[in-house]
């Protein structure tokens, strides 16, 4: 098959800004991957193409890049599955990390975030002579996070990191759960106290981008949500995120549907934050669309059944 790669190029020595270069490869095997094609370019067409790659089996995490705008592993992506109707495949470096050259980005940002979560097992007390005895289910559960190969795809496409580079980000937070959820770790409490701070678990918007792009099915966002549950259960409740979640549930429980205004107001922990809602509230009033709130927030038909369902299932929490 023919492969038409459109590759973003940038050499800091000579280029003022990135540009695209097209490579047409003919007679490639049907199953050719984007990485195979890039290697073919680098070895036989244009030796100056800069990229990282190693294992070719989606286990080393080296070759993450954006293919048609979305971060993934080039070694795992078959050209035939991503070629556009005109046959082209666009290849760009990952986002949220500065480009060093062509498809090579500065990964230090990624490693620093991993380091920030205290990424090693912290046990306490006498070390057993043999292994720690732990439930296999709990170990199996952790495999979901240990499957992360640190390729950076989730960090590349995280929509929060794009706005706030201080966010710990999906990979590091998924890694954080790996220790919080490990029965052998004795520092669960202080970890959670750390992860609820600004830049931590409550800054995730659950936009599913990391879930979508993770080439290993780690679904970092799901672990962030797991951390939120753990943090709340551990008593870290003085946070707008927890208030938001609780008020949301209460209002649906009582009336069958959401009291938007109450949710916004009661999520805010400080008077200053509550006041910040005043302008938007006033604008709503002026436009005749203040949602029914407080006593005006009527019950939906069948709201008593909704409440019963809440009571049944909250008892199981």
């Amino acid at each position: 098959m023919d492969v038409n790669l459109r590759v973003q190029r940038y050499d800091p020595a000579g280029d003022r800004k990135p540009y695209y270069e097209e490579y047409l490869l003919t007679g490639q095997p049907e199953g050719v991957t984007v990485l195979d094609a890039l290697i073919e370019v680098r070895e036989n067409v244009d030796e100056t193409l800069g990229m990282r790659c190693s294992c070719r089996s989606s286990i080393c995490g080296s070759c993450a890049m954006r293919i048609n705008g979305q971060a993934t592993l080039a070694c795992k992506t078959r050209v035939s599955s991503v070629a556009q109707p005109d046959g082209s495949v666009t290849v760009e470096p990952m986002g949220n990390m500065p480009v060093l050259k062509d498809l090579v980005v500065d990964f230090e940002i990624f490693w620093n975030k991993i380091n920030d979560i205290g990424p090693w097992l912290k046990t306490e007390g006498p070390v057993p002579e043999r292994e720690y005895i732990v439930d296999n289910e709990k170990m199996l559960n952790l495999i979901g996070t240990v499957g992360c190969i640190m390729c950076g795809a989730c960090v590349s496409d995280c929509t929060v990191l794009a706005a706030d580079p201080d966010f710990l980000g999906p990979a590091a937070l998924a890694k954080a759960y790996r220790f919080v959820g490990d029965p052998r770790d004795a520092h669960r409490e202080e970890r959670l106290a750390d992860y609820v701070k600004d830049g931590g678990i409550w800054d995730c918007t659950h936009c599913y981008y990391c879930v979508e792009v993770c080439p290993k099915g780690v679904a970092p966002m799901e672990w962030i949500l797991e951390l939120r549950r753990e943090a709340e259960a551990a008593g870290h409740t003085n946070h707008n995120g927890v208030r938001h979640s609780k008020v949301f549930a209460e209002s649906v429980k009582e009336a069958g549907w959401l009291d938007e205004a109450k949710l916004a107001m009661e999520s805010m922990g400080s008077l200053k934050e509550k006041l910040s809602l005043v302008p938007v509230g006033l604008r709503s009033l002026l436009h005749g669309k203040m949602p029914p709130t407080g006593p005006l927030h009527y019950k939906r038909p069948g709201a008593d059944h909704v409440k019963r369902i809440f009571e049944e299932l909250e008892a199981k929490e």
Binding site: W120, L121, P128, E131, Y132, N136, M139, D182
Partner: peptide
């Protein structure tokens, strides 16, 4: 002990 999550 270092943290490898061996199957049990």
């Amino acid at each position: 002990h270092m943290g490898v999550i061996f199957n049990r």
